[in-house]
Simulated scan of single mutants.
Amino acid sequence: MPLQNGARAAAEAQWQHGKPAAPPRRRAGAAVALLLLRVAALCTSAAAAALAATHGAALRRAPFRFLLAADAIVAVYSAFEAAAAAWEAATGATLLPEAMQLWFDFGHDQGFGYMALAAAAVAARDAASCGGGGGGREWRSAAGGAAACARADAAVALGFAGFAFLALAALVTGFRVARFLATGSRSAPPSTSDY
């Protein structure tokens, strides 16, 4: 079975230096950063979905139903990934085999991030008609004026924030994939001063 989760880097260091490798230290910096980004994406996406779900006039419009669905999916994904990041930060190991976990995280961060961006952009265009024009009368009469427009704007802003946190997470996971491809491990190899 191939070595995983940093064991390969430790074995190579032991072979190069001819000394027994020190016990691998957990480098949880990236895992903690990912955990914070995942929790932030979860909070903003869940809040955007909740605002869109409780806004009756907005739910009669297809862009806001799309925003609700996209942000609900992103919230569920972020909850799963937050649990995985917490596990990795606590134990130093990934839930799935290392290569599979890295590619899973990187691919899904991008896919769900683009979905969240598309939903927020379409809903933003629709919410822009809330303040004026012909569509604005329909919004105000159905939902109670400026407060309805403010709720729609808040849902859209939180949807964009959810995308931003997923985009940052995609940058971190992309860096981890690149490091894995270069070194065979998602964490930095131990420095020579560790021996």
Results as ranks from 00 to 15, higher is better:
residue 31 A to Q: 14
residue 31 A to I: 01
residue 33 A to F: 00
residue 35 L to N: 05
residue 35 L to F: 12
residue 36 L to T: 00
residue 38 R to S: 14
residue 40 A to R: 03
residue 40 A to T: 09
residue 40 A to L: 10
residue 41 A to Y: 13
residue 44 T to S: 14
residue 49 A to D: 01
residue 49 A to C: 00
residue 49 A to Y: 05
residue 51 L to Q: 05
residue 51 L to W: 07
residue 51 L to R: 11
residue 52 A to C: 05
residue 55 H to W: 06
residue 57 A to W: 06
residue 58 A to Y: 14
residue 59 L to D: 02
residue 62 A to I: 11
residue 62 A to N: 03
residue 71 D to H: 15
residue 77 Y to A: 08
residue 80 F to Y: 12
residue 83 A to W: 09
residue 85 A to I: 09
residue 88 E to Y: 06
residue 92 G to E: 10
residue 93 A to Q: 05
residue 93 A to Y: 02
residue 94 T to W: 00
residue 96 L to T: 04
residue 100 M to I: 08
residue 103 W to E: 13
residue 104 F to G: 00
residue 104 F to V: 03
residue 104 F to H: 11
residue 107 G to A: 14
residue 110 Q to S: 04
residue 123 A to I: 07
residue 124 A to Q: 11
residue 125 R to M: 11
residue 127 A to N: 02
residue 129 S to R: 13
residue 129 S to I: 00
residue 130 C to L: 06
residue 130 C to G: 10
residue 132 G to F: 13
residue 133 G to L: 06
residue 134 G to L: 15
residue 136 G to Y: 05
residue 138 E to C: 01
residue 141 S to H: 12
residue 142 A to E: 15
residue 145 G to M: 09
residue 146 A to W: 15
residue 146 A to M: 14
residue 150 A to Y: 01
residue 154 A to Y: 05
residue 154 A to S: 13
residue 155 A to M: 10
residue 156 V to M: 05
residue 157 A to M: 09
residue 157 A to Y: 09
residue 163 F to L: 11
residue 165 F to S: 05
residue 165 F to P: 00
residue 167 A to V: 01
residue 168 L to T: 09
residue 168 L to P: 00
residue 169 A to I: 06
